[in-house]
Write a protein that binds this DNA or RNA. Structure first.
Length: 718
DNA sequence: TTAAGTATGCTTTTT
DNA sequence: GCATACTTAA
């Protein structure tokens, strides 16, 4: 394999600069992934580095799998002993392995967002907290942010100011962590946080991984958060053999704690860094890049770089104005239908939108036109109710401490166990100081005859399956459970049409677990145990389930499109309020992230890109007038194509500026914990809200210490 | 006490 | 337009 011939000079430099820190600033479509693959292959094949000593972190599981496949197919490298995966999956592996040094055992459950909210709600009843004043979703976000910044409950007030709101959040955070600990459960953020803490506090273990991971590569570095930065820093700060690849112009995850500073200030942390820019794009025609460049130039938080290309094509990004979202969907469906009749593959078409809710009208339009489509994202397959129910059974068997999952299945399928019965079992559990799983195995004097019968029946089934879970293959066990309760039959016989798809999903779930088992056996030569399956799918995204062989148009959010490319790209809903999203226009930082989102979307395209916006759009039950996105004004006109009969007239206010706020009053609402500014009283935090929009009555704690009640119209979000 | 039936409130983006 | 939270019937 001749590395030099197959790479451009910059890529070659990335691949061959092995020792010391390397920062690769790689523009969209510049062969970033290719460089990472070749670099890995170069280390192994040319430099004879043991694969065991290489650590590669990718952004998605899909990217990890592709990387492994290509190493095997193109370079004949067995990826078995290579550590390639997402931060979350790699951390899970480390935490399971190091259980002796950790406060939980390796059978831990992984809680997703809805599990987290449910735990928070449980904590509220215990602490007597009003969910209206402390919305569980908001509090979950705050807790998540603490964890991503490695702030434990005990450190909470070192980093947060002390007021009524923060003190309550602190109490919730602490009780929430206690609950997880009792349940032997970790949430997504814990996976990162505990790994970082483990490396930080345990020098022996840190040294072990430092030695093991002698060469470290991180893809999509712009989207790493502090916890992730710390994990890598603890491994790589001594040997400095760290290669990070990223594009600050594609940083779109700051809301998840990603810190763009990690890439902008890389040189501060790793002094002798070799900085390499990949600016040649191999994907898009010149006009697409010119348009994207003229857009992204408006950002202030960025490394200067300009993408260029050799690809010439008369094609320009095209601006399309539609009457409403239905017309928009019809237009896209018609266009794709046409491409299809020209013999183009549906797999090369993608619809990109800002919010998942926008997908519905496209589903309708595509069904009508008989175009096969596949939605990526939205509700994850493994989060669907019927699938989660079965998963909860499996989780309980692996981790009997998992109350969350236990309570989920105690009356699924319906076996006459309601709130009162559960309360009795809870009381009995407390008396015995045991888990639910063990509590129902014993004779419970509180229960009536009928209640006791259904509980003991469940108890004996679980007991049997618990034994099975250690002996039977995971596929057999899962099928047994599904058959025992006739889940498929139940949904097939249901009158509710939605339930048909539920039975389909259960069948698909069985297929998924079979596929997992086969792959696992192929990869490792061993039978998987249940926990392997559970932990893997807990970290699976919808992107990982995309069926590449199926001929279908993909529909996804712009976030999900990162790293992908398509011939024909339809970017829809390019309107103010949607892109930039009305919730992200408050700060320059947020606005710039929205701009990057459009930048990412445009740079996915290889052959054509359409930017669609509508005049009217339906939100819930009202039709709003919408305006083209302010970003469309920033794209240099000469690089755009506009339909002749549709003169693009950007609405401008008298001052010549684009109206800042198309956010209509009906959309303007306040949340508890939100930071606001008042002309006279200055900055403050909202403690209580009643009503919405301008009429909302707000209770605000101002930073001068005053508590005031104020009407929504007088304050602005900060 | 539970299960079915009805009202309500919420939608940014995801590992 | 959907899922969750409350209300009412059995």
């Amino acid at each position: 394999m001749n590395f030099q011939n197959e790479l451009n000079p910059q890529q070659y430099k990335v691949v061959t600069t092995i020792e010391g820190p390397v920062l690769v600033l790689a523009g969209a479509g510049s062969g970033k992934t290719r460089s990472v693959i070749y670099r890995t292959a170069y280390l192994i094949n040319k430099k004879k580095v043991n694969p065991w000593n290489i650590f590669v972190v990718t952004f998605t599981n899909k990217a990890a799998r592709e990387l492994k496949d290509r190493l095997e197919n193109t370079f004949g490298i067995s990826a078995q002993s290579l550590w390639i995966g997402t931060f979350h999956s790699v951390c899970t592996r480390i935490l399971r392995y190091e259980e002796k040094s950790l406060p939980f055992n390796s059978n831990f459950s992984i809680y997703d967002e809805s599990d987290q909210k449910s735990v928070i709600k449980k904590v509220y009843t215990k602490l007597d907290i009003d969910p209206k004043k402390f919305p569980p979703g908001k509090v979950r976000e705050i807790i998540s942010r603490q964890k991503n910044s490695l702030i434990l409950p005990k450190d909470f007030f070192d980093f947060n100011e002390t007021n009524y709101f923060s003190e309550t959040v602190y109490k919730i955070y602490k009780a929430y962590q206690d609950f997880l600990s009792v349940n032997n459960a970790l949430d997504f953020d814990d996976l990162l946080m505990y790994t970082a803490i483990l490396f930080h506090d345990n020098e022996k273990i840190r040294k072990k991984y430092e030695k093991k991971f002698h060469y470290v590569m991180i893809d999509e570095y712009q989207d790493t958060n502090y916890a992730q930065f710390k994990i890598i820093n603890l491994i790589a700060k001594n040997h400095q053999n760290l290669c990070v690849v990223g594009d600050d112009d594609q940083a779109i995850y700051s809301w998840r704690g990603a810190n763009i500073r990690n890439i902008l200030n890389f040189e501060d942390d790793y002094k002798s860094v070799v900085k390499i820019k990949l600016e040649q794009n191999y994907r898009s025609p010149k006009s697409f890049l010119d348009a994207a460049n003229s857009l992204i130039r408006n950002n202030t938080e960025r490394h200067e770089k300009v993408l260029w290309t050799d690809i010439t094509s008369p094609e320009k990004p095209e601006l399309i104005k539609l009457e409403n979202e239905n017309k928009e969907a019809e237009y896209v469906a018609r266009e794709i239908s046409q491409l299809q009749s020209l013999g183009k593959s549906l797999n090369e078409c993608v619809v990109l939108y800002r919010t998942n809710a926008q997908s519905r009208v496209f589903e309708n339009a595509f069904s009508l036109q008989k175009i096969r489509y596949q939605i990526v994202g939205g509700v994850n397959f493994y989060q669907r109710k019927e699938v989660k129910d079965i998963l909860a059974y499996l989780k309980v068997l692996v981790n009997p401490q998992d109350e969350e999952s236990f309570l989920r299945i105690i009356n699924v399928p319906s076996r006459g166990i309601g709130k009162m019965t559960i309360d009795k079992i809870s009381a009995f559990k407390l008396e015995n100081n045991s888990t639910y799983f063990d509590a129902i195995q014993k004779k419970n004097p509180h229960l009536s005859g009928k209640q006791e019968r259904s509980i003991t029946e469940l108890a004996s089934k679980l007991k049997k399956w618990k034994v099975d879970s250690e002996n039977l293959p995971v596929t057999v066990l899962t099928k047994n459970i599904i058959e025992e309760f006739d889940f498929i039959d139940y949904y097939e016989k249901s009158k509710d049409p939605k339930d048909i798809s539920r039975s389909e999903n259960i069948k698909e779930f069985i297929a998924a677990i079979e596929e997992f088992s086969e792959n696992y056996e192929n990869d490792t030569g061993e039978q998987p145990i249940l926990i392997d399956f559970l932990q893997q799918i807990s970290l699976q995204t919808d992107l990982d389930n995309v069926n590449e062989d199926e001929e279908a148009v993909k529909l996804m959010t712009m976030h999900n499109a990162k790293g992908l490319e398509f011939d024909n790209v339809y970017i829809v809903g390019v309107e103010d309020g949607l892109l930039p999203h009305s919730r992200s226009v408050d700060t320059l930082h947020n606005l710039e992230e929205e701009r990057r989102l459009l930048y990412v979307a445009i740079t996915r395209a290889k052959k054509s890109v359409k930017l669609c916006y509508t005049r009217h759009r339906r939100y819930f039950d009202t039709v709003l007038t919408s305006l083209p996105s302010r970003f469309l004004l920033e794209i240099d006109e000469q690089y755009l194509k506009k339909e002749d009969n549709l003169e693009f007239q950007a609405p401008r206010s008298k001052t010549g500026k684009h109206p800042k706020n198309i956010v209509l009053e009906s959309q303007k609402y306040f949340n508890i914990g939100q930071k606001i500014k008042h002309d006279k009283f200055g900055n403050g935090v909202i403690l209580d809200v009643s009503g919405s929009g301008n009429d909302a009555k707000l209770t605000i704690s101002f930073s001068n210490g005053k508590l005031k009640k104020i009407i929504g119209t007088f304050v602005k979000p900060v």
